[in-house]
Write a protein that binds this DNA or RNA. Structure first.
Length: 132
DNA sequence: GCCAACGTTGGC
DNA sequence: GCCAACGTTGGC
């Protein structure tokens, strides 16, 4: 099982929207590095749902991959995956993440613009343990 | 709203 | 293939 962090601007598509839709095609990624990570996503992989570009920047929930990558009908150079809402988790701000020494290898800090990021399993477990 | 970081485009 | 110009992302 792999872990990922996927970003969304809540003004465009929030964790509430994700919950309401239950299953969502993750579209709009137009960055090759992010796309390559999407291609590595496997069914049942867990994704941290991250709110970007807002007052409360950070992780807000969990979703899981239910359909592996397939071509984006709007642009065949890119792909979509389907994800399903799992749950909200207590908000973990970017600031809080930065303060946890074991999480310093998250791409989030150095590649702030990457919208799909891998999370190594050690880091994932640490984040999950923040929410008993 | 500003601006730094950085990815993309296009002229040469 | 280089690189300047430009556009976008995202934190603050």
């Amino acid at each position: 099982m792999n872990y990922w962090l996927i970003k969304s601007e809540p003004s465009v598509f929030s964790i509430e929207d994700m919950k309401a839709k239950n299953i969502e095609s993750w579209d709009g990624v137009r960055n090759y590095q992010a796309r390559n990570f999407m291609k590595e996503m496997k069914k049942d992989d867990l994704c941290f749902f991250y709110h970007s570009n807002t007052k409360l920047v950070g992780i807000v929930g969990l979703v899981e991959v239910v359909k592996e990558f397939y071509p984006d009908p709007l642009d065949e150079r890119f792909v979509l995956v389907d994800v399903r809402y799992k749950k909200h988790i207590p908000f973990i701000s970017l600031e809080d993440l930065k303060l946890i020494p074991q999480l310093q290898n998250l791409p989030l800090f150095k590649q702030s613009r990457l919208s799909i990021q891998p999370v190594d399993s050690d880091s994932a477990h640490i984040i999950l343990k923040l929410n008993p």
